[in-house]
Design a protein around this nucleic acid. Structure first.
Lengths: 109, 109
DNA sequence: TAATTATATTGCAATATTACGATAAGTCTT
DNA sequence: AAGACTTATCGTAATATTGCAATATAATTA
């Protein structure tokens, strides 16, 4: 096995889990935080700032890009990455609704 | 390799990525949604409602429990799971701050 | 055009995850 | 205690992820 059974879940569940998975790595959180901080985009600064090899950073960026969370633009020699506003907003809404649907303590456990 | 370099990240980054990872699977999202819906807890209903084997569900529950997102109480023959309010709130805050720190479009890409 | 710089891709080894059957462990009923 | 029932754990096979060196690709500069 070892293969997630996506067929049995809703599109929403699969989609949300994809986005979460893309963010579920400390390096990718660090990358996103870095992008959020320098409101402007960044590029290979990451390789210096995080302690990971260039190939590894590039791979993490690719995953974030594949998930649609960030987008990259070629800027001369380097590449400039930034948040994809649409996906980010969607994530914010979806996650907000999900997390917010918990109505504290009450009855259980 | 194949081993995440947690040493080089902050506790916050590692912790948040752990929580996200625990939720980053459609089955575990489905489980959480199920728990959120029946505000009360649930148990082996999941095995019937999701189309996964009992061992698989049990494993997913264990992961959610290990991450601290849910907690289980033995209730006679069955086990009752529910949200851990403290961790949930923390997640809500941390993620809210993270996602909310993006100040739309502006300059880039 | 050649050298330089920045990023992407490939190939690989180590480790992690997913799913499940089989089985163990625990609780309840009789 | 014996059986029924629920949940956990173990073992295993398939697949995915992580990280990096090496190399390829692309743009800029000399």
């Amino acid at each position: 096995m070892g293969l997630t059974k996506t067929e049995i879940f809703t599109d929403e569940q699969n989609q949300l889990s994809q986005l979460l998975k893309a963010m579920a790595h400390p390096a990718r959180i660090a990358i996103l935080q870095r992008i959020l901080k320098s409101n402007t985009c960044i590029c290979g600064d990451l390789v210096e700032e995080l302690g990971l090899a260039q190939a590894t950073i590039s791979q993490h960026l690719k995953e974030l890009k594949n998930a649609g969370i960030i987008q990259g633009t070629i800027e001369g020699v380097s590449v400039c990455y930034c948040i994809n506003p649409i996906v980010w907003k969607q994530l914010e809404l979806q996650l907000g609704a999900f997390l917010g649907s918990y109505k504290g303590e009450a009855n259980c456990c």
